[in-house]
């Protein structure tokens, strides 16, 4: 029998382990949660692992800008209170980890370590820091359960001044821009609304109810997957490309035709 096994068999060992575990939990509890409630939630849903994993992921990939415990630095804002939805949106769309500083972090391919699991863990960690909007459930973002026509009206009333009628995106001031919505997953659309990334306003559940959000998701996804009934869509941005085609295709074609026609010399009569 080795010393350790002897230790383990000691009658007091049970109590010692219990105390140790309690202490550990206590410490974790204390360090993880300044704002207590979210951690309760994490604990209750058995996601403590996620939080811990998330924390180490965070410190490896995000802390250079956001600080070791997401308190924020001069190169990145604090993430306390932004919620799991913000992290999921930013990381799954490739915006975070941000690469180079610019007017706005663009959507880009995600780095290799990012997958559903790591994203969930990061999200759980940030959620545990100060709460905030959570990731929507599958039903909340199911386009099939939304009313596209209603969603269209809401979309036109709330979003197109930045994102354009067909979700093609558009320019904002000083190098900022509203991106195209063609690549956003239903979940990302929902999360963009509840978190309001950067120049985008927050559309919380009192302004636009979850049901209405689902309607809008239905509209956005239906219109963007629609086949253009009139031929090539020309980017669906309206008169600018149409005018370009009228000149580049139309006028050049007619000029070529005119040259061709007049180049045909009459035979001597």
């Amino acid at each position: 029998m080795t010393r350790t096994t002897a230790w383990r068999r000691h009658p007091l060992a049970r109590y010692a382990v219990l105390v140790l575990a309690l202490a550990l939990i206590g410490v974790a509890y204390a360090t993880l949660v300044q704002g207590s409630r979210p951690a309760d939630a994490a604990l209750a849903s058995g996601k403590l692992d996620d939080v811990a994993q998330g924390k180490s992921l965070f410190q490896a990939h995000c802390s250079s800008c956001h600080g070791l415990s997401a308190e924020g630095t001069s190169t990145g804002p604090t993430l306390v209170g932004v919620g799991a939805a913000a992290v999921d949106f930013q990381v799954s769309s490739g915006r975070m980890p941000a690469a180079n500083p610019g007017a706005q972090a663009p959507r880009k391919p995600t780095p290799r370590w990012v997958n559903e699991e790591t994203t969930r863990q990061l999200a759980a960690y940030v959620q545990s820091l100060g709460g905030g909007p959570t990731i929507p459930s599958k039903d909340q973002v199911d386009p099939a359960m939304g009313n596209a026509a209603k969603g269209g009206e809401l979309f036109r009333a709330n979003c197109i001044q930045c994102h354009n009628w067909g979700g093609a995106g558009g320019a904002l001031t000083r190098g900022k821009y509203a991106p195209s919505l063609n690549e956003s997953s239903p979940q990302q659309i929902y999360e963009a609304m509840v978190t309001g990334p950067q120049a985008m306003p927050v559309f919380n559940d009192t302004t636009i109810t979850p049901q209405e959000k689902r309607d809008m998701i239905a509209y956005i996804t239906e219109v963007r997957s629609q086949r253009d009934p009139g031929g090539f869509g020309l980017g669906r941005i309206g008169p600018v490309t149409e005018g370009l085609v009228a000149w580049v295709v139309g006028i050049s074609f007619m000029a070529l035709v005119a040259i061709w026609i007049t180049a045909k010399k009459r035979k001597k009569s």
């Binding site: 354009n164 093609a168 005018g243």
Partner: peptide
């Protein structure tokens, strides 16, 4: 009002 509102050329 939409972004990208333009008149004909």
């Amino acid at each position: 009002i939409s972004a990208g509102s333009q008149p004909d050329f």
